[in-house]
Every structure is written in C-alpha cells, then in structure tokens.
C-alpha cells in the first residue's frame, strides 16, 4: 500500500469512528484560520462533544483529505460519516437550527 493509501485509510477510519469530526486549521482552543474558528464556534453552541484533527499539525492529512473527499478547502465537517461541508454550509445549517438536530441525532445514536 502506498503512503497515500495508508493516510486515506486512516482518514476513513477517523470519519467512521467519530460521529462528529472536524478537520480544521489549528485546534478548537486556538484556531489558525477564521473559517475554522467560526465553524468551531457554532459546533460548540451545539453542546455535544466533537472530534477534531489539526491539519496544520498533520500535513499528510492536509494533502490527502481533499482528494478523498473531493472537497478542496478546510475546514471540513463530517457527521455520521458524511461530509456536511465547510464553514459556509455549517453556518447556514446552524442558522436554520438544522445543525444542532443533526449533531444531537448523531450523539444519541453513538451513546
């Protein structure tokens, strides 16, 4: 298996293992990008735990994930194994109240 296949397999495992996972620049405590910061803010407002991967600390994931997901930018939010979107989509879903419903549903299934 090539190194990139290896990273892709690791990413798929992360997405499968975590009901809510955010690939972001920086950490929820210290986001390194305004788009990541804003996404974290609305996720925190949903008051459920979420996993995160700091892609600045893991360049192999940063390089490979856009190819795996067919999504060129960060952050990328996954709920129950599906790409929800980046900052703009997450914000729109938060505005409409849909985001909290999706996250609550994912958390209750995982519990």
């Amino acid at each position: 298996m090539s190194e990139q296949d290896d990273v892709a397999a690791r990413i798929k495992q992360q997405i499968a293992d975590n009901p809510v996972i955010l690939y972001m620049k920086g950490t929820p405590q210290m986001p390194m990008c305004g788009f990541s910061m804003r996404t974290v803010e609305v996720l925190k407002q949903c008051e459920q735990e979420f996993a995160f991967v700091n892609i600045i600390a893991d360049p192999s994931i940063r390089e490979t994930l856009p190819k795996v997901s067919d999504w060129p930018t960060f952050p990328q939010l996954y709920i129950e194994g599906e790409l929800v979107g980046g900052c703009d989509i997450t914000m729109e879903l938060a505005e409409s109240g849909e985001l909290k419903k999706m996250i609550d549903a994912a958390a209750s299934k995982a519990a």
């Binding site: 390194m32 990008c33 305004g34 910061m37 804003r38 960060f74």
Partner: peptide, 17 residues
C-alpha cells in the same frame, strides 16, 4: 450575505483554507 470571518494567520506560512 453574512460577513466573512477575520483572518487568524493560518495562511501566512501554509496557504490554503
């Protein structure tokens, strides 16, 4: 349309959101 978020410096060394 909502305003874009402020920069947090991440693109300085790294590029790419």
């Amino acid at each position: 349309v909502p305003a874009s978020p402020p920069c947090r410096g991440g693109s300085k060394a790294e590029g790419g959101h």
